[in-house]
Simulated scan of single mutants.
Amino acid sequence: MSFEWRYVVRPDGSFWRTPNVDGALDSVTDEQLQGMWPLVDQHRGDREPVSCSRCGREVVLHWRAPAPGVMLELCEHCDSGRPAAADLIRWKRDPARRAVDLPLLFAMWETETMEAMGWVFHPPQA
């Protein structure tokens, strides 16, 4: 069984991902995928901005980590000195950069952030 993520990016740079097990979503367009999960967008505008737990400023991205109970924050003020975080911040802020490979940027940021929190990523065994 193969597993990878399928990303859907909105024009404002926000995005979400869903599992693509054994390539089941390979033939589905982004527009079709968006229509399959309308609840993802239904309450998007109702959310309060999330504040950084380190400096109190609004975060660029708030994401549930692959580790149980761990939330990841991407803060422009606190994280711009970390390479993967800086790349993802630039991607999020600049629509011209949206052609850059989001899955790779996101995976690098997620790994960098998890490692900074003391977690270690072990890639799946082939």
Rank of each mutant, 00 (worst) to 15 (best):
L105S: 07
N20A: 05
V70A: 05
M71A: 12
R93I: 01
D26N: 15
H43L: 14
L105F: 09
A99P: 01
L104V: 12
Q34T: 06
C75H: 13
S27N: 00
P66G: 15
A107R: 11
G45I: 07
A65Q: 00
E48T: 13
G81W: 03
R64S: 06
A107D: 12
T29A: 00
K92T: 15
R82S: 12
S27Q: 06
R64F: 05
P95L: 04
D87I: 00
V60W: 05
G23Y: 02
R97N: 01
W37N: 05
A65D: 14
G35I: 03
P95S: 06
P68W: 11
R82P: 06
W109S: 01
V21S: 05
S51K: 11
D46V: 07
R93G: 04
L74S: 05
E48P: 09
D46Q: 15
G56V: 14
M108W: 10
D87R: 09
K92A: 12
P49T: 10
R47S: 12
W63M: 14
D22N: 14
H62R: 14
W37E: 07
E31R: 10
D46W: 09
H62S: 15
E58M: 10
G81N: 11
L39S: 12
L39Y: 12
G45N: 13
T29D: 00
D46A: 15
V40R: 13
R54T: 11
F106K: 08
R64T: 03
A107Y: 07
H62I: 08
H43P: 03
A84Q: 12
R54S: 11
C78F: 04
R44Y: 06
M36K: 08
V21H: 13
H43D: 13
C55L: 10
W37M: 07
D87P: 05
G45E: 13
W91Q: 04
R90L: 01
L74H: 10
D26T: 06
C78G: 05
R47L: 14
R90Q: 00
L74G: 09
H43K: 15
Q34I: 09
M36Y: 11
V50L: 06
D22K: 07
L104Q: 13
G45A: 08
D26G: 08
R44T: 14
A84D: 05
D94M: 06
C78P: 09
C75P: 06
A85G: 08
F106N: 06
V40N: 10
P95V: 00
V28N: 09
Q34L: 14
A86P: 01
G35T: 04
D87G: 01
V59P: 09
P66L: 08
D79W: 11
D26Q: 03
G45D: 15
Q32R: 12
E73C: 05
Q42P: 02
A107W: 04
C55H: 14
W109I: 01
A85M: 00
W37L: 10
A85K: 01
R57M: 07
P38F: 01
R44S: 13
L25K: 02
V50M: 13
L72E: 02
D94Y: 01
V50C: 10
P49Q: 05
F106P: 08
C78K: 04
L88T: 10
D30L: 11
L61W: 10
R57H: 13
